[in-house]
Simulated assay, not measured.
Amino acid sequence: MTTEFYTLLSALSAEFGPTGCECRVAALLEKELSGLCDCSRDRMGSLICHLPGEGEKLLLVAHMDEAGFMVTDIDDKGYLRIAPTGNADPACFLGKHLTVGNETVLLKGIGGGKVLHLTSGAERTDSPSFDKLFIDLGFQNKEEAEKQIEKGDFAAYSGGLSELPNGYLAGKALESRSMCAIAAEVLKLATRKPVSERKDLTVVFAAKEKAGMSSAVTAAYRENAQKALLLGFSPSMDFDKTEDHQKGARLGKGPVLAFKDGNVLFYDSPFLGELRQTAEKAALPFQMLNSPLTLSSGRAHLGKEGLPMASLQIPCFNPETPLVIVQKSDLCATLSLLSALV
C-alpha cells in the first residue's frame, strides 16, 4: 500500500458524507482526479469520471455515502432529534462523537439518550430506538440551536483512520470509502496505459446509494456501457462460535466475487468468470460468496437491452458503525485485480 493511497483513504474515511450530503466527498475525489480524466456531477450529486480507451466500455460503481442521520426536530432543550439515513445501528450511538451540518456548516456533537445508570429491567437488554436518542451540541435551548442548525440538516459519526496490528485498519465509512479510494487509484493507474491497451472506463462515485437512489442506473444508460462492476462490501461474521456456513467473508482472504445478492438474482456468469480468471492469472486471493446485501445500483442491469454485471466486494467487520475494520492485504488485492481488469 503506497503512502499516496493511504493518505487518500484516510482523508475519505474522515470526510463528512452521510446519505444525501455527499458533496464534500465528491469534491475531495474530484480534486484528486481532476486533470487525469473527465469529471462531472449529475443531478443526484454523484461524481462521474470518464477515461477514454479503445477497449470495451466498462462501468465501475462505488458509493460515497455513509450511514448517518437527518435532523427531524429540535426540542426545547436544544437537543437534535434524528432519524437514520441508511442502516445505522442505535446500539452504537450513545456517547459517540458526531458531526452535524450541511454543505456549508459543520458542528461537533455527542450522541445522547438515557444512560445505563438510570435504566432498569427491559431497558437494559433492549436496544434503544432512535426516537429516544438525540444529539447534544451544547446548546442551552431551542432558540440557540436554531441559529445554526435546521430541520433537514445531516449528521454522521466523526473519526479518522487508525492502524491496528497485523495489517488491520479501523475507521468510519470504510465499507464504502475503501472502494472509492481503490476506484480512484485504478483511474490513476489506467492513465499510464496506452489508450489502445485500456478499456473505455467510466467510474461512478454514487450518491444516495443507501437511500436506494443510486446514479448507476442513469449512468449505465448514458454511457452505453457494455459491462458494469459494482464495488461494495461484504460483512464478516467470523466469530469463534459462528457456524462455518454463516461466517460470511473472511478478512485477509482477498476480495469477494459475489455470484448472487438480494437485488441481482444472479450476476453475469461470463463476466464473473473473467474476474476469476484475472485473479487466478495474477495469483491474487479471492472469495466466491453469496452476498447478503442488496445494492440499489444493481438495478443498472435492467438498462437498455440489459447490462452484464458482476460485483466485487471488500470484506469488512462492523460495517456501517463508527469503526469499520478492513485488512490492508484485501485492499491491495482488490486494487491489483481491478488494475489488471481495466
Score class of each variant (00 low, 15 high):
residue 163 E to W: 07
residue 207 A to W: 14
residue 86 G to T: 13
residue 90 P to L: 09
residue 314 I to N: 03
residue 18 P to Y: 13
residue 181 A to E: 06
residue 256 V to G: 01
residue 35 G to V: 15
residue 204 V to A: 15
residue 209 E to C: 06
residue 9 L to D: 03
residue 87 N to G: 15
residue 304 K to G: 00
residue 296 S to V: 02
residue 228 A to Q: 11
residue 39 C to Q: 10
residue 266 F to M: 13
residue 113 G to H: 09
residue 62 A to N: 03
residue 8 L to M: 01
residue 149 I to R: 06
residue 65 D to V: 08
residue 131 D to H: 15
residue 53 G to R: 08
residue 211 A to P: 02
residue 46 S to M: 05
residue 229 L to H: 08
residue 240 D to L: 15
residue 338 L to E: 02
residue 232 G to Y: 06
residue 131 D to R: 14
residue 212 G to D: 07
residue 118 L to Y: 10
residue 332 C to P: 00
residue 249 A to Y: 09
residue 141 N to S: 08
residue 337 L to F: 08
residue 68 G to V: 07
residue 205 F to H: 13
residue 29 L to W: 09
residue 262 G to S: 12
residue 7 T to G: 00
residue 286 F to A: 05
residue 176 S to E: 08
residue 39 C to L: 10
residue 331 L to P: 02
residue 309 M to I: 15
residue 147 K to F: 01
residue 132 K to T: 12
residue 164 L to K: 07
residue 160 G to A: 09
residue 8 L to T: 04
residue 324 V to S: 00
residue 60 L to C: 06
residue 164 L to P: 06
residue 76 D to A: 14
residue 54 E to K: 15
residue 325 I to G: 00
residue 54 E to S: 13
residue 195 V to G: 00
residue 173 A to G: 01
residue 265 L to V: 10
residue 333 A to T: 03
residue 238 D to Y: 14
residue 326 V to L: 05
residue 115 V to F: 06
residue 271 F to C: 06
residue 185 E to I: 06
residue 271 F to T: 15
residue 107 L to S: 04
residue 159 G to W: 14
residue 76 D to N: 11
residue 233 F to H: 11
residue 207 A to Y: 10
residue 8 L to R: 11
residue 294 T to A: 12
residue 114 K to Q: 12
residue 279 A to I: 07
residue 99 T to W: 12
residue 297 S to T: 07
residue 135 I to F: 02
residue 190 A to K: 03
residue 75 D to L: 05
residue 179 M to W: 08
residue 327 Q to D: 03
residue 218 T to N: 12
residue 144 E to K: 13
residue 130 F to H: 04
residue 306 G to D: 01
residue 201 L to F: 04
residue 280 E to W: 04
residue 42 D to S: 08
residue 191 T to Y: 10
